[in-house]
Write a protein that binds this DNA or RNA. Structure first.
Lengths: 186, 186, 186, 186
DNA sequence: CATGAATGAGTGTTCATTCAT
DNA sequence: CATGAATGAACACTCATTCAT
């Protein structure tokens, strides 16, 4: 089910490339030119292509670990007694992740994604979010016209908003999330 | 103060290019390849460059008329008796404009723009928004920690959210705006 | 019907590129790497692409003028009283052209060709060859099992044979053609 | 004088690679991308390189067995009473082999080959062909201006002709060979 | 010996921008 | 002013070959 473990040197190269890609994304360069990534990582282009055949694959690999963290939060959100608290927790976690990582933001905003494992994670995340939302809606804690697609879009939108401009993005992420949650009330 | 009026044929070319660029933006192609714009407009590339020296200039020219409409709305918002109603009106107008036009969205989200006239309009718009916001804040109608930069970012974020995915964007723009206004309450 | 005449400089560039391509082909390098052609011709890559979007287009352009000469020979062959003499004339002309120009050889050997004008010339050439062959066959001057496809293949094969190795290719082309014509007798 | 026998697994790998290469050549893919060959043969690229250091070496190895068959035919041709019949037999055998195997065709058309054993076989083949040709020429059965290089070139040319296009290549090989033999008469 | 990851030169192709006509 | 040919940097992608494991 899982791929064979990488050779030590291959794993090291893979990590280097991922790190450089993460840096590039953090620096706001979403173009991810594979030549440039290779140069900065100190590996040949071919090596980048071997590990990540497309820009999309690289992007999704960068998003993989944050997605896992987000899934963990989704599980905690589901375990929460109060549905609105759970929803708030999930939304906050998603916005925080997106604010700190434009790569995840792109993956979460995309309608579909190339890598099957990533797609599965997205599906699972949305499913969990759907369940949390449904509980909140059933208890009358949020507007009845909200669906899970709205949550996805609003989270992406708030993350986008928090990333705009200089200043303290995390502080903004918190405030905007608070406002979003408040705005969801019926 | 204003540039000399264009020759008739020059003006016609300018309009053609603008129309084609607007179409391209509406179609979601924000790349604005100037060669392609020129081809579709039936003019030479050089002509496009003469009128719009940079991609930014073209983008801002396309945003010019929607910006004017938005400024008009800002004036109406200022004239409103109830400050929160005024703010809501302005936010709604901005989100609607952005939702229908990714070009304006980019111009509004940018920290600064190339064209002086466009910059002036943005400044005026933000000033008006600032006044409306200040009135609302003074009356305790909105959270005291909101500043005009937050409004700018949130409007852009909500517009971004409404544009994500298929379906009825305008309907989403309305609902999301409603939620945003509600979330602004203290 | 004909394309607009090229600007003087454009025509000069086109000719340079063609000349360099012809040289490369003559030197036995059929790869026609467009970057390399551009470098040798002293023009930008983009210029080569503008004139010849594909390697195939360049190849066919190089073959254009020899094809015209061949068509002229085909007309003379048709005008010949004796059908076998006509056929011999045509075959000889084709082999000579192919021997001196591997580009034409490739175009003539290909099942179909990208450029419509080139395709038309090939079609016309084969039609003329077909008529000459038919007359010869009807007169019992050649084997009845020969069709125009055989002529095409054999001419290409003999051209290929004459180009193999060093030495006097034209001398070989003549002798081999003579043998081919002799071998066609019933 | 001969290399040490291969280990059983090495021999098996060698055969697999050869088989795959033969398939690729038969399928008309003369590019012989060694990575691809390795993948199809289920071995690592390194293994292919160990056995066949260059593309040429692989090609010649593939040609080895057909060359042996051809040599056998050359011996039979020399044993033939009638020199022209012998020559015809040899030519026919060579064309048949070439028509069915573009790899041998390339080896036979090349001015020299990398592997010493292959070179020796080619030399022996040409020597035998030379003796057969000489007898025929001495008897006045063929044109006096034919030398063994011509035979090599013409055989390759006829093989090339027979391979051009779809249809029954073997049938064409027969007819073209017949014509070639006829054309060789003084 | 076998493996396959790594390399990087080479090639194809696009496109923003300039400038001769 | 308008045109569009020319430019060349930038990027995508491939593949023959080497070498650490």
């Amino acid at each position: 089910m899982s791929p064979p473990p990488l050779r030590a040197d291959a794993a090291r190269n893979r990590e280097r490339v991922l790190a450089v890609a993460q840096e590039a994304i953090d620096a706001g360069d979403a173009s991810l030119a594979l030549n440039e990534i290779a140069r900065r990582a100190g590996v040949g282009v071919g090596t980048v292509y071997r590990h990540f055949p497309t820009r999309q694959a690289l992007l999704e690999a960068v998003a993989d670990e944050p997605l896992d963290r987000l899934l963990e939060q989704a599980r905690l959100a589901e375990a929460q007694d109060d549905p609105l608290t759970g929803l708030a927790r999930l939304v906050r976690a998603a916005v925080v992740v997106e604010t700190g990582n434009a790569g995840v933001a792109e993956v979460l905003a995309a309608p579909y994604v190339a890598d099957a494992a990533t797609e599965a994670k997205k599906t699972e995340l949305f499913a969990a979010a759907g369940r949390v939302l449904e509980r909140a809606r059933a208890g009358g804690a949020v507007r009845p016209d909200l669906d899970v697609g709205d949550i996805q879009r609003l989270v992406c939108g708030i993350g986008y908003a928090a990333r705009l401009g200089d200043g303290d993005r995390d502080e903004r992420a918190d405030r905007y999330t608070e406002m979003l949650i408040a705005g969801m009330r019926p």
